[in-house]
């Protein structure tokens, strides 16, 4: 399924449960959607880095087995954006469901 536009919100949602690194975020989205939301993992990082640039996330690094591991953490701004995006998504998806289900 094409995640274009929704990936930011999904990343923010995953990080609302605690700091995480890219691989964990990717597997969490796939697992929680039971594989429906499948995407190429390389496309996750541009979105992650954009969210960080925009102040939605912060990152911290530590070294594991000589490799730099970067953890991403939700900021206050990211948390507010997530709340707004979730409300907007519920509004839009409710409207679409209404039309497709024939109740609207």
């Amino acid at each position: 399924m094409n995640l274009k536009g929704s990936l930011s919100t999904l990343i923010l949602e995953v990080l609302s449960h605690g700091p995480s690194h890219g691989y964990e975020i990717a597997t969490s989205i796939k697992r929680r959607s039971a594989g429906v939301l499948d995407f190429k993992e390389g496309t996750l990082y541009p979105t992650l880095h954009t969210l960080e640039r925009d102040g939605m996330l912060t990152s911290e690094t530590d070294i594991e087995n000589g490799r730099t591991r970067r953890y991403y953490k939700l900021t206050e701004k990211g948390s507010k954006t997530l709340q707004k995006s979730t409300l907007e998504w519920e509004r839009v998806s409710g409207a679409i469901s209404g039309i497709l289900g024939g109740t609207a």
């Binding site: 190429k40 993992e41 390389g42 496309t43 990082y45 541009p46 880095h49 954009t50």
Partner: peptide
């Protein structure tokens, strides 16, 4: 699993 690097490059070049 990473996908096409050119697609990722386009994304990174929008950010950086």
């Amino acid at each position: 699993d990473l996908g096409y690097p050119k697609v990722a490059a386009r994304g990174f070049e929008k950010t950086y």
